[in-house]
């Protein structure tokens, strides 16, 4: 069995201050447990994280880039969807 037969895994790391896991890259591994170990060695050796998720790349379903105009462009002309027309009351610091 060569490296190429191993499935590809997408790696998500949560940093110490981070609230959510962020995609950091991908790697190959024989199974999920080894993928976590490999991710630990490849992506957290400079204290980048305190939690790791691995997801087999096969299991990710993505939007089709050729549909981008249909999917995303219509929202460009709908500025009213941003809550920018409201005055934020005094005393609200985190908006």
């Amino acid at each position: 069995m060569t490296n190429k037969d191993w499935p590809l895994w997408e790696i998500f790391i949560r940093s110490k201050q981070g609230l959510n896991h962020k995609h950091v890259g991908s790697l190959r591994a024989a199974d999920a447990e080894m993928a976590v170990e490999n991710a630990r060695d490849v992506y957290t050796r400079r204290s980048e994280g305190i939690s790791i998720w691995v997801i087999e790349s096969n299991n990710i379903h993505a939007s089709d880039s050729s549909d981008a105009d249909m999917l995303f462009e219509p929202s460009n002309t709908k500025v009213y969807r941003h809550p920018t027309f409201y005055d934020v009351p005094d005393g609200i610091s985190h908006m």
């Binding site: 790697l27 170990e37 490849v42």
Partner: peptide
């Protein structure tokens, strides 16, 4: 190393 991930693991 046999694969990049393992090369890093062994040297760690």
């Amino acid at each position: 190393g046999p694969i990049l991930e393992e090369d890093i693991a062994i040297t760690n």
